Computed example of a mutant assay.
Amino acid sequence: MTFQIMTDSTSDLSQYYLKKNHIEILGMTVTVGNQTYETIGEEALDNSTLLTAIKKGATVHTSQINSGQFLEVFKKYALAEEELLYLAFSSGLSGTYQSALIAQNMILEEFPNAKITVIDTLAAASGEGFIVEEVVKLRDAGKSLTETLKVLADIIPRLQSRFMVDDLNHLARGGRIPKAVALVGTMANIKPLLDVDPAGKLRQVTKVRGKKKAINQMLEKTLEEMDTAYPRLVISYSGTDEVAQEIKKQAMQKNGISDVDVRPLSPTIVTHTGDGTIAIFSISRQSRE
């Protein structure tokens, strides 16, 4: 390998994929009621347990990865004199990126020649995972870290993340969207569509009446703007995968789409979205506006 890749548990990547591709990972924690769960490893919280607790009215919240956790991992690679690239959850949604920068600065004070690179993906969930997967392809093709960073500078601003959340009150409670936007979502069958803006924050794009119409609009917009040099989509969901699989079926019938992955959202993300969330990720021709 030309360099080591690291990410966090919000990226929706499976343990199998992470292990197969030698990716270092740190996990946020999720607190359900009075019990705190890990989001990686054999004892990781699963979505079924989490969603059941949410439906029963349990109080849930997440905790970001702290600087001490980053410091421990970064030091390991500094001592080994290995290049490490950490791809972080959006700084617009969490303080995890800032924690990583603090740890990076501490390492560089002790090991001035350490090669620890921290990149803000400005993405969430499988959008972050999408970026990680592209980096894996580059690394495995023998690209250097410098070459990889040039590609990241190009594709990160063009990563499109579109969300439809059944119950926006979860996002409002966590401060991810304004309460006024959540209020609209409680009106009769009105589905606000969200995306991730250039600063990596969630924003409302439009409002659509009806879930089916909202999903169709998300898919149509994605396909309309997609860069054919990256002919793949990632569809994420919370709860059951029936809707996500139907979107995949529709997408695969379109010309130019050769790869559509369906995967569950991570518990860290589901804590803030609840059940019934659908998200579509792609690389578009132009940067987010």
Rank of each mutant, 00 (worst) to 15 (best):
I5Y: 03
T7V: 03
T7Q: 02
D12R: 02
Y16C: 00
Y17L: 04
K19A: 12
N21T: 00
N21V: 01
I23Q: 10
I23G: 08
E24K: 04
E24M: 03
E24I: 02
E43T: 11
A44N: 05
A44Q: 13
D46I: 14
N47W: 08
T49R: 10
G57S: 11
V60K: 01
S63C: 11
S67V: 07
G68D: 08
F70W: 08
F70M: 10
V73C: 03
L85F: 05
Y86W: 10
Y86E: 05
L87P: 05
S90Q: 08
S99V: 08
A100C: 04
L101M: 08
E110I: 02
D120W: 04
L122K: 13
L122I: 02
K137P: 06
L138N: 00
A141D: 14
L149S: 01
K150E: 14
K150N: 11
K150T: 11
I155R: 09
P157H: 01
Q160V: 11
S161W: 06
R162A: 13
F163Q: 10
V165L: 00
A180N: 12
V181W: 04
V184G: 07
N189L: 03
L193R: 09
L194Q: 06
A199H: 13
R203H: 13
V205Y: 04
R209V: 05
K211R: 15
Q217F: 14
M218Q: 06
L219R: 02
E220F: 03
T222D: 10
L223T: 04
E224I: 02
E224V: 09
V234G: 05
S236C: 05
S236P: 04
Y237G: 11
D241E: 10
E242C: 04
V243L: 13
Q245P: 03
E246V: 14
I247Q: 11
K248Q: 14
K249Y: 10
Q250A: 15
A251Q: 05
G256D: 09
G256I: 06
I257G: 04
D261N: 15
D261C: 12
D261A: 15
V262Y: 04
R263Q: 15
G276H: 04
T277Y: 10
F281Y: 07
S282N: 15
I283Q: 07
